[in-house]
Nucleic acid binder design. Structure first.
Length: 286
DNA sequence: ATGAATACCTGAGAGC
DNA sequence: TGCTCTCAGGTATTCA
């Protein structure tokens, strides 16, 4: 499901509702959601009891809750995968269908990790309050104040690959997934197969600007929801699906030129382009 | 270095 | 109705 704007919406919800709360108990209903917590579910439960949440942070599509017990700077590291949700609920509200892990809080509410497909998960990150060591390979994202567009342009041009493949590589720039990659490429009039080595500097600058813009706009709309799989911590959908120009628009007219948007299979998923605004490179060079 | 394939999962919808 | 097939916002690992 979620890309950077959706994860940031969730992070803000957690900042508002769980920072300052203490975890009183943990229920693990689905151990596979703790696959990445190598010491296992019992350890996860034992180590969270009585810990206080002091911050909600994010890099790219990862988010984490910094914990304070005056001894460790640990964190609960979370990735939502394709279908993960973090929901804040009153304790007496009925359990949702795909509830996997419940954190009971000291204000009578619960933080519930729900995940239909179990691609996401939670783990305790030792000493991970500032930046979990598990995710140091994840590059800064375009909404990070320390994101370096010039450095990104340099590393992009050192690559020899398709530009969409590079956008989706979380070690080059993080937070971009299939939706916002297609939207930013459409805004930049770039075909996904354009070779990174041969992009003009102004094309890269345009691309970085559009990636930043589209994710900022999506964030302001609460993210993109196609169905009930992406919601904020209060269970509400985002509205950016109404503003999509290319993604999911197969057969509909390009908002710029009216040519029907086409869908191609690419990287075991779909890519949406305007065949007129985003011509396919002919020889793989440009 | 690059990228293809695979693994990890559930469920909705289409077509028969 | 049920069966099979395809598709879906992602990441990590292994192998060519």
């Amino acid at each position: 499901m979620p890309e950077l704007p959706e994860v940031e919406v969730v992070r803000r919800g957690l900042e508002d509702h769980v920072v300052g709360r203490t975890i009183t108990a943990v229920d693990v209903l689905e151990p596979r959601s703790l696959r990445r917590h190598l010491p296992g579910p019992a350890d996860f439960v034992a180590r969270l009891r009585a810990r206080t949440i002091v911050a909600a942070r994010r890099r790219g599509k990862y988010l984490w809750l910094a914990l304070d017990d005056d001894v460790h700077g640990d964190a609960v590291l979370c990735h939502l995968g394709m279908s993960g949700q973090m929901l804040i609920s009153d304790a007496d509200a009925p359990d949702p269908r795909h509830l996997r892990v419940r954190l009971r809080l000291d204000d009578g509410r619960e933080l519930r990790f729900c995940d239909q497909r179990i691609f996401g998960g939670l783990a305790i990150s030792e000493d991970g309050a500032v930046l979990p060591p598990e995710i140091t390979h994840i590059a800064r994202d375009p909404l990070d104040v320390a994101f370096d567009p010039g450095g990104f342009a340099t590393s992009l041009r050192r690559r020899q690959t398709g530009v969409k493949r590079a956008l989706l590589d979380q070690t080059l720039v993080s937070g971009v997934g299939n939706i916002y990659a297609d939207e930013a490429l459409w805004r930049s009039r770039l075909h996904y197969a354009r070779n990174t080595r041969h992009l003009r500097l102004r094309e890269i600058e345009s691309l970085v600007g559009h990636v930043t813009d589209v994710m900022t706009e999506a964030l302001a709309q609460g993210g993109t929801s196609f169905d009930a799989l992406y919601v904020n911590v209060n269970g509400q959908s985002g509205y950016f699906d109404r503003s999509l120009s290319a993604y999911g628009q197969e057969g509909r007219p390009c908002p710029r030129c009216g040519t029907p948007i086409r869908r191609d299979a690419f990287m075991n998923r779909s890519s949406f382009t305007c065949p007129r605004c985003q011509p396919r490179p002919r020889n793989g060079r440009w």
